[in-house]
Simulated scan of single mutants.
Amino acid sequence: MTRIRRGYIARRRRIKKRLFVSSFRGGLSKRTRSITQQERRALASSHRDRDRQKINFRRLWITRINSVIREGWVSYSYSYSRLIHDLYKSELLLNRKILAQIAIANKNCLYLISNESIKEVNWLEGICRSNLNGVPRRMNSGRVKMNKKSSQKKYESTQSIKTF
């Protein structure tokens, strides 16, 4: 019997894999079985390292911000966590990447941002303390418990609606 040549599909698949690992050294770029193993490993590593890269950059930005804060540029006995807390309370939505760039490029600007957030948070906390009478508060059970005055007003308003 004459020899039958196989189709081109498997060859085309192997050539694609060879192109992927063509820069690898030694037999890792020549043997078909090693090529498939190395391709799998490379793709898994790249997927894992993309996540690690995000984590590492975030750590770098946090370190840069913290170092500038602790140098004394911002405020005495002020920390990174306090700065982020104040920024969220004052609704200044600056991400850590931008804050790190500001901290490196212009420390005075970070000083102004932090002082502005401190002033605004102190002002907001003063308002919140004065308006606690009519605001419902949460208890440990998770149910909302109203203060006596506000619950009586609510009851009176429902009674007046029913009479009409």
Rank of each mutant, 00 (worst) to 15 (best):
I69F: 00
E71T: 15
E71G: 11
E71D: 15
G72W: 13
W73V: 03
W73M: 12
W73G: 02
V74W: 04
V74N: 02
V74Q: 01
S75Y: 10
S75L: 15
S77C: 10
Y78Q: 10
Y78W: 10
S79H: 00
Y80Q: 03
R82L: 07
L83T: 03
I84Q: 07
H85K: 14
H85D: 13
D86M: 05
D86C: 15
L87N: 04
L87S: 06
Y88M: 12
Y88G: 08
K89I: 15
K89R: 15
S90R: 02
S90F: 11
E91A: 11
L92W: 00
L93K: 12
L93E: 13
L93S: 13
L94C: 02
L94H: 05
L94N: 05
N95A: 02
K97L: 11
I98G: 02
I98D: 09
L99P: 04
L99W: 01
A100E: 00
Q101A: 09
Q101V: 02
Q101R: 09
I102R: 01
A103M: 05
I104M: 07
N106R: 13
N106W: 08
K107Q: 09
C109M: 03
C109A: 12
Y111F: 15
L112I: 15
L112F: 10
L112H: 13
S114M: 01
N115M: 10
E116A: 08
S117L: 03
I118G: 03
I118R: 15
K119M: 14
N122G: 03
W123E: 08
G126F: 00
G126A: 04
I127Y: 00
I127P: 04
C128F: 07
R129D: 00
R129L: 03
L132R: 14
L132I: 12
N133L: 11
N133D: 14
G134R: 02
G134T: 03
V135E: 07
V135T: 15
P136W: 06
R137K: 06
R137S: 15
R137H: 11
M139L: 10
S141D: 15
S141E: 12
G142V: 08
G142L: 06
G142H: 06
V144A: 08
K145I: 14
K145G: 06
M146A: 09
M146G: 01
M146D: 10
K148M: 07
